[in-house]
Every structure is written in structure tokens, then in C-alpha cells.
């Protein structure tokens, strides 16, 4: 289960640009030492007198032991909250809560794993790759994005992975197309046992379909709009099939963000499936 989270007012150590992304390293002891691959943090944006009430969720990209523990976040500017974050400089403070969510489960025995990252989704895959390699697993990467500057971490993937396949929709780097176009080939060549994926929902849906085709387990880290990140507001829900076969609207923040891909009803995200527990006019168990 998730390590119990803490709130920390951290100091920004470094900020840098990585292609289309911003990276922010924050001193956050207490968060850093409990982080496992797949965890995320909830970040308060806008400063003390902000009108932005909800926390923003970011995957923890890297953890380092410096200064009692640092976490690095990688993000793209989407709206006012991320724009504020992009303006932070070294020595500014940042209020974070973490580590949050359920991390990626790791296989007991060494096996071959394909790690699929879409855009900044690959940020959370490197810590995972590290943990898998420590268990003697073979790692292969597939990273994709619309264009070359939005493929995150290609160099690092090349260093860590047995093989690394890149795809871009405009063909500016790697193969032209989507990760799902090349994934079947990678799985077949590596005789992969497991797929891990993090990225946009549509990509996760495609990756899951491929893994199901090959009949291998797939773990996906989903992204849903969140207000609290700690499981109290019920705004981040998506339909997921439980062990008992019943679909429930579960919280991405505390029941996820990592789920078994085949359990997530991707086609029904954004709706309440009629057969979900407690759906209007639906089944009541």
C-alpha cells in the first residue's frame, strides 16, 4: 500500500528546461525517502494568497538523497498552475504533499519488461526501470510523442534499456507513428513478460489492447483530473473492474494511479457505465 504521505514546504534546488518540458528539483525530505516508482505528489500552486484552491498532481521523476532528499518533477505548461510553476526559481519554496497513490507493483522473479511512455509519461518510468533492473529484469523502452521535442528521456532510455524504440507522429525522431504501431514488434522480439505504461489515456488504451493480444500483464498509470490527490473529494474517478468482476467508480489518486490495464474500462471513462455498482437504474449488490 501507499506509504503515508506528508506535507512539506520544500526549497527549489534547480530548475531547467528539457526540450518542451520544465524540470524542477525540490528539497523534500520525508517525501523523497518514501517514494516508490509510480508515486506522485500534490503541489500547491500560486503562493500563499492564491486563488487556485486545488493541488496539481505530478509524477515523481527522480529521487536523490542530496540535502536530506530531493524529488524532481517534469511538467509541461497547460494552464495557470503549471505556468506559475514554470516561473519558479532556485531558492523559492514549494508546498508539496506526497508520496501519493499506489506505486507500480514489481515482479517477484526476474523477467523481461517493456516500458512504454507517452510524452512526459516516461518521467515516472526511469525510477521503475532502476527498481526492475535491481531485481534482475531486462528492460526495453518504447517512447513516443507528437514530435521530437516532446519525447522525454530518450537518452536515458538508451543508456538503461536493452533496446529503445522511439516514435513521433510527425516523424521528427524515430519511427513515424504511435507507440502502439511498434509495440507488438518489440513485445515479440523481446518475448516480453510484462508491459508497464504511463502516458495519455488514449495511449494507455492502445497499449492495453496490444498486451491483451499477447496475453501478458500490463500495468498502466492513468491521469485523471484531481482536486485533492489524497482520496477525499471523489472527483478523480474512473470505471475499473474489481477482483469480483464488478465495475466500480474508483479513485485514480488512492486506488491508482497504477491499475492493471485490462481492468480499466477505457471506453467508458467519462461516463458511468450502466452496469457499474450504484449506477442510476443499475445493479445494486
Amino acid at each position: 500500500m501507499a506509504a503515508s504521505p506528508v506535507q512539506v514546504t520544500g526549497t527549489v534546488l534547480t530548475t531547467r528546461r528539457v526540450d518542451a518540458y520544465h524540470a524542477l528539483t525540490v528539497v523534500a525530505p520525508g517525501v523523497a525517502d518514501r517514494t516508490r516508482p509510480g508515486h506522485f505528489v500534490g503541489v500547491a500552486v500560486g503562493g500563499p494568497s492564491t486563488s487556485m484552491l486545488t493541488r496539481r498532481a505530478f509524477a515523481i521523476h527522480d529521487v536523490k538523497p542530496d540535502y536530506g532528499g530531493t524529488v524532481e518533477l517534469v511538467f509541461t505548461v497547460r494552464g495557470p498552475g503549471t505556468a506559475w510553476l514554470a516561473d519558479l526559481r532556485a531558492r523559492d519554496t514549494l508546498d508539496l504533499v506526497g508520496p501519493l497513490g499506489r506505486p507500480f507493483p514489481l515482479p517477484r522473479d526476474p523477467c523481461t519488461c517493456v516500458l512504454v511512455g507517452g510524452e512526459y509519461g516516461s518521467a515516472s518510468l526511469f525510477a521503475l526501470a532502476d527498481a526492475l533492473q535491481q531485481r534482475g529484469c531486462r528492460i526495453d523502452f518504447v517512447l513516443g510523442a507528437p514530435s521530437a521535442d516532446r519525447v522525454f528521456g530518450a537518452l536515458r532510455a538508451r543508456r538503461m534499456g536493452e533496446t529503445t524504440t522511439l516514435t513521433t507522429e510527425d516523424g521528427s525522431i524515430g519511427m513515424r507513428g504511435k507507440v502502439t504501431d511498434v509495440l507488438p514488434g518489440v513485445i515479440a522480439d523481446t518475448r516480453a513478460d510484462v508491459v508497464y505504461a504511463c502516458g495519455p489515456m488514449a495511449m494507455l488504451q492502445g497499449v492495453t489492447a496490444v498486451a491483451v493480444e499477447f496475453d501478458i500483464p500490463v500495468q498502466v498509470a492513468v491521469e485523471e483530473a484531481m482536486a485533492c490527490g489524497i482520496g477525499v473529494c471523489m472527483t478523480c474517478v474512473l470505471p475499473v473492474i474489481g477482483d469480483d468482476g464488478v465495475t466500480r467508480m474508483v479513485r485514480a489518486c488512492t486506488d491508482g494511479p497504477v491499475f492493471r490495464g485490462e481492468r480499466v474500462r477505457f471506453e467508458d471513462v467519462g461516463t458511468i457505465p450502466f452496469d457499474a455498482l450504484g449506477a442510476p437504474g443499475g445493479r445494486h449488490v
Binding site: C233, M234, M249, T271, P280
Partner: peptide
Amino acid sequence: PRAGRPTPRMAETPSGLLNAV
């Protein structure tokens, strides 16, 4: 049991938050 409303269920507004859980 109630499954609630579909997502998006939340929208941030100035100094506030709209919710339809």
C-alpha cells in the same frame, strides 16, 4: 450504493471549486 456523476466532476474557479460528484 451510488456511482455518482460522470467525470469531469470538478472545475476550479477563482477562489473556489465547482463540483458535481
